[in-house]
Design a protein around this nucleic acid. Structure first.
Length: 281
DNA sequence: GTTTAACCCTGCACGC
DNA sequence: TGCGTGCAGGGTTAAA
């Protein structure tokens, strides 16, 4: 389940691996649900044709979206959904199950998009004169690239009646945070998932502001979280390491590392939520 | 403005 | 062993 740290790790791999290279052709494979991952396009050719011959100028990230900036004012945007992977290899490599799209580079390598649950998506768009992508307009600030200043964050919290976990996962407020890291941030800040945003004191809001940055930086340093075999892999198929540093997520029933009481798990608004009932208020 | 539920999908764990 | 069921999750949409 790639969130910001996982997507950022893949972006850094991509910067080194594909910047400056030209795509000879993109191919949407004819296997089952492959059409679903390019659902923003009417048909396969609408996705494949504009990519042929394009050069990747740089690779950016906005929240959980990867943006391959191309020449001719185009961009290839990739969202990995829950189970999407971008893997670099050779055309002769055996295909993993659920390989939906492949990109052949003019000098030989191949980039493949694999996604068992097909919640991810890829699309090609035109960039504006300023280089903006209209489809990503709704995203809020990126907490790694352009973190919201403390004072602005505090004012934003005070003006909202949303519960904290919903707010952290609201991509139009802060983009890039999902279920795992929202639980970890709220634990680090000592705040319950269902606290109302506007009820936070200044010290509490400050703790949350710090926790967002701290958890994300540590997770990026750990190259993301790989919880299960079929989940997050980097560009070369390697697992992340941050799962060894999670303090509440998937640790229900284990002792809290701060107070020793049992970590709880509840199902809240259709998402599993992990917290320490003693430390988080 | 905010909350809640449903939907999309596949693989896995579990109980029978 | 094999089957059915529930769960996991991100983003979107509709309804309340």
């Amino acid at each position: 389940m790639p969130e910001l740290p996982e997507v950022e790790s893949i972006r850094r791999d991509l910067v080194a691996a594909v910047t400056g290279r030209s795509i000879a052709r993109a191919t949407v494979r004819n296997t089952g649900n492959s059409g679903r991952v390019i659902r923003r396009h009417q048909d396969r050719s609408g996705f494949e044709a504009p990519l042929a011959g394009r050069t990747i100028l740089e690779v950016q990230r906005r929240g959980k979206f990867l943006i391959h900036v191309l020449d001719e004012k185009l961009a290839l945007v990739v969202h990995l959904g829950m189970s999407g992977q971008l893997l670099l290899g050779m055309p002769a490599d055996p295909y993993a199950n659920h390989t939906h799209v492949e990109f052949d580079f003019e000098d030989g390598d191949q980039l493949r998009y694999v996604d068992p649950r097909t919640f991810g998506q890829l699309f090609v768009v035109e960039r504006s004169e300023a280089g903006e992508i209209a489809e990503l307009d709704r995203l809020g600030m990126d907490p790694l690239v352009a973190p919201m200043p403390w004072r602005e964050f505090s004012v934003a919290l005070a003006g909202r009646k949303t519960k904290l976990k919903s707010l952290l996962m609201d991509q139009s407020f802060i983009c890039g945070i999902g279920n795992i890291y929202s639980d970890e941030m709220l634990f680090a800040a000592g705040l319950r998932y269902d606290r109302v945003s506007e009820s936070l004191s200044e010290p509490e809001a400050r703790r949350l502001h710090e926790a967002i940055g701290t958890i994300l930086r540590r997770a990026v340093d750990g190259r993301g979280t790989s919880m299960r075999d079929e989940q997050y892999r980097d560009l070369y198929g390697n697992r992340g390491a941050f799962q060894h540093h999670l303090l509440v997520y998937a640790r229900q029933g284990e002792p809290c590392t701060v107070c020793g009481s049992q970590v709880s798990r509840v199902r809240w608004t259709n998402r599993s939520t992990h917290f320490c009932p003693q430390c988080q208020r």
